[in-house]
Design a protein around this nucleic acid. Structure first.
Length: 552
RNA sequence: GCGCCAGUAGCUCAGUCGGAUAGAGCAACGGCCUUCUAAGCCGUCGGCCGAGGGUUCGAAUCCUUCCUGGCGCGCCA
């Protein structure tokens, strides 16, 4: 971050002298090949045209003025069609250690969010059964995204939308009621589309413990109501616990029912009608989403008088925007992707810009064991719950596995592989790097070699080998990685960075003795460097919600 | 039929707002523990980036036509 910022401001100064702005398409990034220096920019190729110059000519004149402007630049080369390849001095890179040790847990944070209010709504599973592994992926993605956005300077709020109104809740109540009657010897016929999982039987038993058989004497409607609210509350408590155990916190639990009961849905529908965006046809109320790019108009209220989910979803998003969020991010299972155009159309109809709603799709998780797929279905009642999976493989391994793919590709989650302590399962590789450093400091303390209090330039001067510089350069990139992860809503990039950093650390460790280095000064310099690595690893893992162990 | 996503090494995947010779891990093979954790390190092998066409100084990346796989297209939720 420091290097890019520095180079960019130098180039901007050149532009300012000529009264020009930074060209949109110009970029500065580390080149793939080290021999092209620390940073490469296509600046001259992009900027040459408006100046009426040839790219290479501009590059050559920049080369001279850059070197004259900043002593941190060791080398500036012109290459190919007009690339500028810039190499910073080792002293410049060593300042990274000082910076990290000063910023500590703030290293990797940035202000790119500019305090904008952003909401991340995720999981939001119907409270009709326990969370399964697919919800776990959504939970991990949403939680890591929220952490990443927060670190990037957004004002983030996390939320779980509870679908506690409507048909699914009635089915849940009916399912529990059926199991309850069955439990007490009443002959029952199983309803259609009911929840037949084991957990419903457990609910019926819990209900019995609380109420005995008294529900059998109630009017059926009343008994159903008791079953429904009891089941929902119990399941919701279970979901909350599962999420807490998975280190996922939602700040707001938003009830659909409360929205309906407060009349918010009716109000939103009324607004739409008034603005001519909703109309009656065939006895139903329709939302004119087609004019906002949807395939066709959608029903808000069925001819039966019942509201559709879409109606309350629109009212819910209306409510979100009224609460002042600049952007709301919804994390959905990929099977809902067909729903995006109509939601975006709806958001536009509400008077917001299309991109105030960002939908992140999370693809399917194939739960496997030893290469064989485990079938999952809430309805059929055969699934491994998130809680079961976490109990088996641990929070760290599960979260890291979820963050090791971009959310948009399907993920095979093999319980045997996730438990395995190999590079198939990189969480251990990264954690091991952190533990190694910690244990090295423990050993240093035993030997009476405490870490220097300050990372002064003269102390760090011994860091001048190629491995030192590789590590320093990688450390310096961490703030860029977190900023980009936030900008592109891709927290998985952090896990890839951490693997790289861990790899570089392991290489360094193998090649450079730290506590037995030639001179006391060099010992200090290397300890400070490794301390900076540990801080960066810890900060990165924190963004993923994974622990950085001292020992393994 | 229409739409969304994917197709990169034997396997699992990064890279995709155009950049220089396409990366990593696993697997396979060969090395490295009397010295800070071998859950590690080093090396070798491995590619027509699904196929064709286009755009340009430059394409895995953008456009287009196909092929293959997953998912979705209700007054379901």
């Amino acid at each position: 971050m420091r290097a890019v910022t520095r180079l960019k401001s130098l180039l901007n100064a050149v532009l300012a002298e000529k009264g020009l702005d930074w060209p949109e398409k110009a970029n500065i990034e580390p080149p793939k090949d080290k021999k092209f220096g620390d940073l490469a920019t296509n600046f001259a190729m992009i900027a040459a045209k408006p100046l009426g110059l040839k790219p290479r000519e501009l590059a050559e004149s920049l080369q001279k003025s850059l070197l004259a402007k900043d002593p941190s630049l060791e080398k500036v080369e012109v290459a190919g069609p007009g690339f500028l390849n810039v190499t910073f001095s080792p002293a410049f890179w060593r300042e990274t250690v000082t910076e990290i040790l000063e910023q500590k847990e703030r290293y990797g944070t940035s202000g790119i969010g500019k305090g904008r209010k952003i909401q991340v709504e995720f999981v939001s599973a119907n409270p009709t059964g326990p969370l399964h592994i697919g919800h776990g992926r959504g939970a991990a993605v949403g939680d890591c995204l929220a952490r990443t956005l927060r670190a990037a300077g957004y004002d983030v709020s996390t939320e779980y939308y509870i679908n506690d109104a409507g048909r699914q809740m009635r089915l849940l109540g009916l399912s529990t009621w059926t199991r309850y009657q069955e439990l007490h010897g009443v002959a029952v016929t199983y309803p259609e589309d009911w929840y037949k999982g084991e957990y419903i039987i457990d609910l019926a038993k819990d209900l019995t413990a609380l109420h005995g058989k008294t529900l059998l004497d109630m009017p059926e409607a009343e008994a159903l109501a008791v079953c429904q609210s009891f089941s929902m509350n119990a399941i919701l408590e279970g979901i909350k616990k599962d999420l807490r155990d998975f280190r996922v916190e939602h700040e707001v639990w938003f009830s659909e029912k409360s929205l309906v009961e407060a009349g918010a849905v009716e109000r939103t529908l009324g607004d739409l009608k008034e603005r001519g965006l909703a109309y009656d046809k065939d006895g139903a109320l329709w939302f004119a989403t087609e004019q906002f790019g949807d395939d066709k108009d959608r029903v808000l209220r069925k001819s039966t008088g019942e509201l559709t989910y879409f109606a309350s979803d629109i009212a819910y998003h209306d409510d979100k925007f009224k609460r002042g969020f600049d952007v709301t991010v919804d994390i959905w299972g990929a099977d809902h992707h067909g729903y995006i155009p109509r939601m975006q159309a709806g958001v536009e109809a509400l008077g917001k810009s299309r991109d105030s709603l960002r939908v992140i799709l999370v693809q399917l998780v194939n739960l496997m064991r030893g290469g064989e797929q485990i079938a999952m279905s809430t309805r059929a009642g055969q699934f491994e719950t998130l809680a079961d999976v976490v109990a088996e493989v641990g929070v760290d391994a599960a979260r890291f596995m979820f963050m090791s793919r971009k959310s948009d590709s399907p993920l095979d989650f093999d319980l045997e592989l996730v438990k395995e302590k190999s590079m198939d399962n990189p969480v251990y590789y990264v954690q091991y790097a952190h533990a190694r450093i910690s244990s090295l400091f423990a050993k240093a303390a035993e030997r009476g070699t405490p870490l220097a209090a300050e990372a002064a330039p003269e102390t760090l001067a011994g860091l001048d080998t190629p491995e030192d510089l590789d590590l320093l350069r990688l450390l310096e990139q961490f703030p860029d990685v977190t900023a980009q992860a936030a900008q592109f809503f891709s927290p998985h990039a952090i896990s890839y960075y951490l693997r790289d950093l861990a790899g570089q650390l392991h290489r360094y460790y193998a090649a450079n003795p730290v506590l037995t280095a030639e001179t006391p000064g060099l010992i200090q310099a290397r300890m400070l460097l490794l301390k900076a690595v540990a801080v960066t690893l810890r900060n990165g893992l924190a963004l993923l919600g994974v622990e950085a162990p001292e020992k393994m």
